[in-house]
Design a protein around this nucleic acid. Structure first.
Lengths: 346, 346
DNA sequence: CTCAAAATGAGTTGCGTACCTCAAAACACC
DNA sequence: GGTGTTTTGAGGTACGCAACTCATTTTGAG
């Protein structure tokens, strides 16, 4: 009836006795310090495994003395999504402080590869962990690898650099996000047939390109009656997005669906609204003050959300687990693709 | 450019000096131990607040020595959702063990109020925290309150007992879940008009009643063309749900939507399938092996999910935070209502 | 067998808090 | 002013581990 999920608590001393060595040797093995014969290492590790020994996190943390320092390298300029991440980190202040963790925000131009790379290089040595919203570019990749080689734990945030040796990626699967958007547009359009517009920041951005790819995948395969128009590149700017979309709406009276891949939402909404096209199914990304309002008004139909709060906390937890050498709870740290409609607005 | 989110680390000794008292007195204040003059308490608390002092979690945890014991009181019998929660707790074994936390699963008949109540009473004193899937019944409420009075931290899981003095509820807002289901059915049905069926376990279950309430709210307000039929009570059993629904489908040729509020999904799917009614928009709850298959097949259109992994972890984290006297990260522990369609299946 | 190098043992200190004891001081009351 | 009670101080021990020193043992090469 009652079943215990955890073992009884052993200490390093017990492991030392078990392995027939001294505490000092166990310590050397545990921290990969030199000067232990391979055979002895094996014996100690076996004793650890045999008893499924876990070092007491609290004791280890207390003993190491120094506080840990993490840096969050984020885009400069006003970006609501990033501001939310920052705000959520602020909410964790007490949590961080109780664990003697220091988190610093570092703003830089993450869209300029050399600038970003030098910002990263500048961090070397000073931090135990770095979370970075990274551009996928060779020079950035090299900077990340340098950090990793210097012993710093690195996680990419929101936008990944899969070719680098970063320890972890905290963000969504953008192809799946695009697919989800496609399915939503297609399903919500219903019986009608017509054209579907796409507004993106730039097809050069990895995440945007992936979303568009996923979106087209679904549209082609499942909604052949819907005709996807060429992508408008609004550069995530409101004005430009509005102009481009306004022109497109004028050219095509039969647009029934719209996928806004990135930011520039304000402009997209204005174009739709001014053209009186409230019937167009409008799917976009992220829950912000603006998209929340648009959803409630009914102008926007659904938002694909990646929960900035979760991303911020996951990044911190992953960096901490990496720094401590703990395993990562991958299920917990995986960022899910949330579909947000009016009635499940968080 | 760089901005620090945390303060520098003080210790209790610093606070003692600041307040002009001894360490012992600070300790007494911090742990609400008797024998300190109100005026002195104030001075100490002021010093703590003035420096926004946070006790070092690791040190506190180490010093207290005893491990913490938590109990999870869950339904006996084969319930896939509960099995998932249990599985996720198993995945946390290393995490729990590194923090010297002991979690025990206790199976009982949670649908029998007296049985559940006595199971709860039996826990008194033995545990630091209890998570319980609770029926909302006066005798259960009393048992929960007794636990709370005995100093045990109590969280309700999945199903709440709001009238009790439980410290926290880990689960979704079921009215909002019902509303979301309603919006999905309405939107996915599209232009068509017709009837909508509801299959529930029982309207006596709080969570089911709340979901139906939310569902009807949305249908009435936003989809007047859809006619909601009386609720079928399938008791969460496959056979019964299938029979009832099969009859209903026979009686009404114009059913265009279906909301399955609880379990019995297998039966509901069979009824739909056997009747050849693949066109009916089918929205249900929870992502299990079955609903996953149905979503991929296209027989089911969307599942409202409450992420059992998140619930399991949140319950543990909340109990731990309560036991330590730490603040709860409410954003983090809030269980979101996930809309799962084929393309964002987790 | 010798000797240096490598491996290991033994021990210490400190991290910040909890929890405890005992004595001293302050206070209230008559 | 004396009494008893309440409040406070001073100090110690323990928690489990990290990180270090230094002495001792073992090993392997010549």
């Amino acid at each position: 009836m009652a079943e215990t999920l955890t073992a009884t608590a052993l200490t390093l001393k017990d492991i030392a006795r078990e392995a027939g060595v001294s505490l000092a040797t166990v310590d050397r093995v545990l921290h990969n310090r030199p000067g232990v014969r391979p055979d002895t290492v094996r014996r100690v590790k076996e004793a650890i495994a045999r008893n499924s020994f876990q070092p007491h996190v609290a004791a280890a943390e207390l003993a190491r003395g120094r506080a840990r320092r993490f840096a969050f390298v984020m885009p400069s300029g006003p970006n609501p999504f990033m501001q939310q991440i920052e705000a959520y980190l602020g909410e964790m202040a007490a949590w961080l402080s109780a664990r003697r963790l220091h988190v610093e925000m570092i703003a830089t131009d993450v869209f300029d590869a050399p600038v970003l790379a030098s910002s990263l290089e500048a961090l070397s040595g000073g931090y135990d962990g770095v979370a970075v919203v990274a551009l996928d570019h060779p020079i950035v990749r090299a900077a990340i690898n340098d950090l990793v080689d210097a012993g710093t734990k690195v996680v990419t945030l929101v936008s990944d650099v899969p070719s680098s040796r970063r320890h972890h990626y905290v963000g969504i699967d953008n192809i799946a996000a695009g697919r989800t958007a496609g399915a939503l547009v297609g399903r919500l359009v219903g019986q009608r047939s017509g054209k579907v517009a796409i507004v993106a920041g730039s097809q050069g951005l990895r995440d945007h390109a992936e979303r568009i790819f996923g979106f087209n995948q679904v549209m082609t395969a499942e909604f052949p009656d819907l005709d996807v128009l060429p992508v408008l590149e609004g550069r995530d700017e409101d004005d430009r997005s509005e102009q481009l979309l306004t022109r497109l709406l004028g050219e095509h009276a039969d647009i029934v669906g719209l996928y806004n891949v990135g930011a520039g939402t304000q402009g997209v909404a204005k174009a739709l609204s001014d053209a009186g096209r409230h019937d167009v199914v409008f799917v976009g990304h992220d829950v912000t003050a603006l998209t929340r309002r648009l959803l409630l008004q009914g102008l926007m139909d659904a938002a694909i959300s990646q929960n900035p709060g979760h991303e911020a906390r996951a990044a911190v937890r992953v960096l901490l687990a990496l720094a401590r050498g703990e395993p990562i709870l991958s299920e917990q740290e995986k960022i899910r693709i949330d579909i947000v409609m009016r009635d499940n607005l968080p």
